[in-house]
């Protein structure tokens, strides 16, 4: 280790003790008895494959929606006046400062059969029966996108901020319309932020479980719920470890794949 790396030592030790060691320990658990039986179960049974697939599907959708909502938001915050930007930050970060239960119940009040949205829709005559927004996939999606949005907005905000304002101005001066400035200049120069935000949101989505349990009405099953069941209820730690290891490997694989296909660009 070079002398310059010394200041990073505490962080490295922390990672080693609190991250690497437990992960290795977990892998050890999953191979208890020297067999791959638990992996065979995790990858061989329809139930677990289905739930893995569900989990990745949800994570992907949450990521897409976070991107669709988060890009314009991060972009506006990066290009507006400091006053508006601060206000934007407060609203974006608010869900992070709120307890998961408060947040979830707030959505229940808004999305329920007799919730605010449905009452407005019915009073406006747009629908006669309440639309099911809660206790299903839609509810989970809304709740998760809400919580994870900051993780998308902040990297995109940062990426837009890093662009020298002269660059879009130059493009405009050279004859580019607003749309072309976006597609040819902003979008390629913020790919870094999009990638970072998407990976964060995707990976965090994989571990969700309170939100799907409450807003999904039990219908939306994610792998974290099954792992938790194995740890706390079934006390089958080897199997829980095998499920976790599969999730970990799959996550790394997706990350590697995503990195291959994005071409991160450095801006000055």
């Amino acid at each position: 280790m070079t002398t310059r790396a010394w200041p990073a030592l505490p962080a490295l030790i922390l990672l080693l003790v609190f991250f690497l060691f437990p992960v290795v320990r977990m892998l050890g658990f999953s191979l208890e008895g020297g067999t791959f039986d638990w992996y065979a179960k995790a990858l061989g049974e329809g139930l677990y494959l289905r739930v893995f697939w569900n989990t990745f599907e949800i994570a992907l959708l949450v990521t897409v929606f976070c991107l669709l909502l988060g890009y314009p938001l991060g972009f506006l915050m990066a290009t507006t006046t400091p006053g508006w930007a601060t206000l934007g930050f407060i609203f974006v970060l608010l869900p992070l400062w709120t307890s998961v239960l408060v947040r979830t119940y707030a959505w229940m009040v808004l999305l329920g059969r007799n919730g605010v949205f449905n009452r407005l829709l019915m009073e406006a005559g747009l629908t006669t029966d309440p639309i099911p927004l809660l206790h299903n996939f839609t509810g989970v999606l809304i709740g998760m996108v809400h919580v994870l949005l900051p993780y998308m907005v902040l990297p995109i905000y940062g990426a837009v901020r890093r662009i020298d304002p002269a660059i879009p101005a130059a493009a405009a001066g050279l004859g580019a319309s607003g749309g072309r400035i976006f597609w040819r200049i902003y979008l390629p120069l913020t790919l870094n932020g999009i990638f970072a935000g998407s990976v964060l949101v995707f990976v965090l989505s994989l571990g969700f479980f309170i939100t799907p349990a409450l807003l999904g009405g039990g219908r939306v099953m994610m792998i974290a719920v099954l792992i938790e069941q194995q740890v706390r209820e079934a006390l089958n730690w080897p199997f829980a470890a095998a499920l976790s290891a599969v999730l970990l490997v799959a996550t790394f694989a997706i990350y590697a794949l995503a990195q291959r296909f994005s071409q991160p660009e450095t801006t000055r």
Partner: peptide, 16 residues
């Protein structure tokens, strides 16, 4: 399908 103890009463109160 509820998963926490306070949900059933709440679901009834909210007329869900």
């Amino acid at each position: 399908w509820w998963s926490t103890g306070q949900q059933p009463a709440q679901l009834l109160l909210d007329k869900e």
